[in-house]
């Protein structure tokens, strides 16, 4: 049984809400029933088969081919299975994803990827926009579980309001990385922008390169931390630079903050 594949026929005029096309909602449906599902696009409702060519039938493995950045909410609330996006994706990829599901995007994604994500693995081969792993505007609980791996760069406010889980970025991060974090771990191999850890309460930001820190982060000295060995071991199965033992370390410089908040967060910089 081959993967259920949706191949985009042409660039849609308006953005498309892709949230109905997840494994658990398509289970036990025939191709004809899937083709008749309607997707919101602007103020219009479009049948799936007007936007996509449909092939395959395995609803546990979904492929969105020829994808582009007008397709929003891909994998929203995904509860199980694998979803692959060939190309770019729009906003809200993997929003509120649950359980041990997998989403892979071969291109770039727009804002709010992994927004309020609860579990699973999101892999983005390209870059991610602002508010990666954040909360919906007005909400106070961002990503609360799972792992997000970004092979490119991320925009501003990655991990905003993050509560749990791990964000791994092989490239660079924009401004306000880890802003308002409540807990969880963000690891950035590249450079970071201004105001890193802004208003973070708890949680860990792990850096390979020394950032420009705000005055509200205090130097707590250099240390060797045992938990880092466990953390790096947990990356062993990822297809990523993070699984390379040459990139692991346990000697760090520890900065505690944000002291304008409760100051229980930390920025750990590789020594």
């Amino acid at each position: 049984m081959s993967a259920l594949t949706f191949t985009l026929k042409k660039i849609p005029q308006q953005r498309v809400d892709m949230s109905p096309l997840v494994c658990q909602l398509l289970k036990d449906k025939t191709v004809a029933e899937i083709a008749a599902i309607t997707l919101h696009s602007g103020k219009a409702k479009l049948r799936v088969d007007t936007l996509f060519d449909i092939t395959g039938s395995d609803t546990e493995n979904i492929v969105i081919a020829n994808s582009m950045n007008k397709l929003d909410y891909i994998g929203k609330g995904l509860q199980a299975g694998n979803l692959t996006v060939e190309g770019n994706a729009g906003h809200y990829v993997a929003m509120q994803m649950q359980a041990e599901a997998n989403i892979t995007v071969t291109g770039n994604v727009e804002m709010f990827a992994a927004c309020e994500m609860q579990a699973g693995l999101l892999t983005i081969q390209g870059d991610a926009g602002d508010f990666l792993g954040g909360a919906l505007i007005g909400n106070k609980k961002g990503m609360r579980g799972g792992t997000v791996l970004i092979k490119g760069n991320v925009g501003a406010r990655a991990g905003d309001h993050m509560r749990r889980g791990i964000i791994l970025v092989e490239g660079n991060a924009g401004d306000y990385c880890g802003s308002r974090m409540t807990a969880g771990t963000i690891a950035i191999m590249g450079t970071t922008g201004k105001y890193i850890g802004y208003a973070m309460r708890r949680g860990t930001i792990l850096l390979w390169k020394k950032p420009k820190l705000m005055a509200t982060f205090n130097d707590c000295g250099s240390h060797t931390l045992a938990f880092l060995a466990l953390l790096f071991n947990s990356f062993a199965n990822l297809d990523s630079k993070f699984s390379d033992s040459d990139n692991s370390f346990n000697s760090i410089q520890r900065y505690a903050g944000d002291l304008a908040e409760i100051g229980r967060g930390e920025i750990l910089v590789k020594l």
Partner: peptide, 21 residues
């Protein structure tokens, strides 16, 4: 500080020689 790593919860407790994990 709590850390949830590979589904297991750990506690990092600051002590005088560093951290008790």
């Amino acid at each position: 500080t709590s850390k949830l790593i590979a589904g297991k919860r750990y506690w990092r407790i600051p002590v005088m020689d560093g951290e008790f994990l």
